[in-house]
Computed example of a mutant assay.
Amino acid sequence: MNESFHVTLIFAAYKDMGSAKYVLFTVVFLIYLASLLVSISILLLIYLDISLHKPMFIFLFSLIANGLIGSTAVWPKVMVLLLTDVNTGSYKGCLIQIFLIGSYGVCNNAMLTVMAYDRFVSIFKPLQYHTIMTPQKVKQLSFVAYFVPATFLLGQVCLTTQISLCQYTIHKIFCDKLSIFSLSCGDSIISHVSNVYGIFLLIGFGVLPVFLVFLSYWKIVLVTMNASTNARKKAFETCTPHLIIFINFSVATFFSIIYNRISDYVPGGLNVFVSINYVLIPPLMHPVIYGWKNKEIQRSLSKIWRKAIFAVSESLPRVDKSSKVITYCR
């Protein structure tokens, strides 16, 4: 068994923050809390309203749940470190965090690709949509979008566990694979294999999804250019939220990858910005842009509010005017 499992890692980035860590704590706490409230609200809404049990909203449910997993894997621990002077963590906990953050990234890309396919079918084959996107197929696509990327990523983490550590100080606010590699005792066969494996993951679950999504949208644009005004408007309303989310997450992922490769040559403050833009902002944007802005979700929310108001009004005691007794004339 690798003896590194029993070591304690030091997160040196927190020591250089000074009083700024309380400002960062406030920002992280408010955004994370807002993300929790909005995400859980959308999840409950989709779960409780049968009219939202459609492929698009089932995929959205999975996307939002994945965002919660990714953000929760990072920010509660970060907030604890910001408020304490401990600034340490176990190596085992670091490996778990690497797996959860990595799964969040690759599964997010896979799910956004599945959602792009769903939009592609709805526009190109509207009459056969329900025949193609059956409940069974929706379950299969959701399962593949999570199980396949997470399984391959688990292989990456298993390779990481074989690395022997000679240093124990991480200069970031949370763990990632490259941070662990920087602590290794030097080049080894395992490190080279892991790098090749990581490139494979990047191509398969990073580059390929981007290519497939933009290919589908390019075909959608070509078709809608010759369609009627109403058809173009409907396609625009259907695809815009997904495209905004996909571009935002792809840009955040790209900068995160570039930053991780050159993190030793950039200011430490950039670490916080990149981390927030990758793991904190998207889980909040996804339910806001794709959820609250969706007309069907707005109608469902309005319906629930009306039911709640009606239930409250029905529970209030009613005054029977015929039973009133005027006592002032006695």
Rank of each mutant, 00 (worst) to 15 (best):
K172Y: 13
S216Y: 10
D118S: 13
A252W: 03
Q162W: 05
N87W: 13
L44V: 04
I163E: 01
K321A: 14
K303G: 06
V7Q: 10
F143H: 05
K219V: 05
S35M: 11
S51A: 15
C158F: 12
E3F: 02
D49F: 02
L316D: 03
S322N: 07
S19Y: 09
I42Q: 04
G204C: 14
F59G: 01
K233A: 11
M111I: 15
C175V: 00
S103F: 11
V38S: 11
A145Q: 03
V279N: 09
T169I: 14
P126T: 11
K125R: 14
A116G: 07
I40K: 02
K15N: 07
T88L: 05
V272A: 03
W75N: 07
G204L: 09
T151C: 15
Q156Y: 07
V78H: 08
K125A: 14
S62E: 15
I304R: 13
F249Y: 08
L141P: 06
A34G: 15
F254K: 03
F246P: 03
L159H: 03
L48V: 07
V251I: 15
V288W: 13
F25N: 09
G70L: 11
S250H: 06
A145R: 01
V279H: 08
P267R: 02
N277H: 06
W218G: 14
R330L: 07
S71P: 07
K92Q: 01
I297S: 00
F29Y: 08
C158R: 08
P149C: 03
L37T: 09
P287C: 07
T229C: 04
K219Y: 14
S35E: 10
Q298L: 09
L284W: 09
V28D: 11
I40D: 00
L52F: 12
H192I: 09
F246W: 07
V114H: 06
Y197A: 09
E237D: 14
E296A: 06
E314T: 02
S164N: 12
L154D: 01
K303A: 12
L215P: 00
L9D: 05
L178A: 13
Q136T: 10
Y259T: 08
A231C: 14
L44Q: 05
L112A: 00
L153R: 12
A116N: 02
V274N: 08
V23Q: 08
P287H: 13
S322P: 00
V207L: 15
V138L: 10
K139A: 08
S228I: 03
N109F: 08
